[in-house]
Amino acid sequence: MLLFLKILKAGIVTEPLAPGEPDVIEVAREVETKARRLLGRAVAIREVDAGSCNGCEIEITGLTGPVYDSERFGIHFVASPRHADLLLVTGPVTRNMEIPLLKTYEATPDPKIVVAVGDCARTCGVFRGSYAVVGSVDAVIPVDVFVSGCPPEPTDILRGILTALDRLPKRKRRRDGT
């Protein structure tokens, strides 16, 4: 009972998605129009940790919480790449994760989108040059959108995903410009 009183009192805490600085999101490839249309409002995400420090994961976890609530955009996380439309890859790709990352990409049915999250995913960040690191994510699988930041904020990640799906009109205009 107390629990439900608290729920009532708190109300809805989800914040509207504020537009952030544009330079955080970088579009690497044009997403097919078909995929954009199809995945518009129902996206299943498979998260792949390709060797991150788990900082990015903590931010990603924030997405599903009440404040950022990715579910309102029809975005939810799934347990198998077979169910997924979008791969959310974090970290530099380590040697051990190179084949698993490829396999995950292969296991995902078309149409599919890849969003690489964090500085490491693009530049290998502080891990660059390490023996254990193969390279950035786009060295292994094709990436559609990069979200920079170390770690990026949940808002940025969410915006990155939405950019890939081409949903926020603002982003759309921006991409049309590029």
């Binding site: 109300g11 995945l39 129902a42 579910e71 309102r72 029809g74 939810h76 149409p111």
Partner: peptide
């Protein structure tokens, strides 16, 4: 859970999407 959540018709969208996938 004090979230906004997806609208109740979200599963239809998901089904439509799945039917169009490989």
């Amino acid at each position: 859970q004090n979230r906004r959540g997806a609208p109740p018709w979200q599963p239809y969208r998901e089904l439509r999407k799945l039917f169009q996938k490989e």
